[in-house]
Amino acid sequence: MRNKKTGQLRGQFWSLAVSAFILIMAMVAILPMRGKTYSSYRLDQGLDLEGKLDLPEKNMEGAVKRKDGPLYEGKLMEGHLHGPGKVTLEPGMVFEGDFDQGNIQSGKINVNGEGTYLLQEDGSWVKQDAEKK
């Protein structure tokens, strides 16, 4: 039963993560190409960028926010999630970890009501024991 639940969680996480990633990449793709540094920038899709955004390099340190709260907090390097970051997939589902040019290197996902799952080297998710926090 544990493997089935972990598999379901992994499927949910990846579908939400891919959706969030596509949304962030689409947002970055439509940014203006003129060279300038912004502290905030509003996009037509109801997303706001807050922090330091350098264009046209598409580097950012700050947050991508939607109407209901943050979507991504961290850095973008050349338009890719990079370094430590936090992705709020939906209320009660938050991923925190490290990215390298858009690829997840390590992290954990907190699923409200279920607990915290740690990403293993083989790409699987294992529920964190309450004593090991």
Rank of each mutant, 00 (worst) to 15 (best):
L49V: 11
L76K: 00
V64S: 03
K58F: 06
H80Y: 05
L71E: 10
D54I: 15
P56Y: 13
G83R: 12
V64C: 03
G79I: 00
L81Q: 09
E73R: 12
E73N: 11
G79R: 01
P56N: 13
E57L: 08
K52L: 11
G51D: 06
P84V: 05
H82T: 03
P70Q: 15
L71D: 05
G74N: 10
R66K: 13
L81N: 04
G62Y: 01
R66I: 12
K67V: 10
G62D: 02
K65Q: 08
K65E: 04
G62R: 03
E73P: 00
E73H: 07
D54S: 15
R66V: 12
G74P: 07
Y72C: 04
G62I: 05
G79C: 00
E73I: 11
N59Q: 06
G51E: 05
E57F: 02
L81E: 04
G74T: 08
A63T: 09
P56G: 13
H80W: 05
K58S: 07
H82C: 01
E57K: 12
D68P: 13
H80D: 06
L49W: 04
K75C: 03
G62C: 06
P84C: 06
E73D: 09
K75A: 05
D68S: 15
Y72H: 04
P56M: 12
M60P: 06
Y72W: 09
L71Q: 12
E50Y: 07
Y72T: 08
E57H: 08
K67M: 09
E50P: 09
G74I: 08
K65L: 04
G51N: 06
E57N: 06
N59Y: 07
N59W: 04
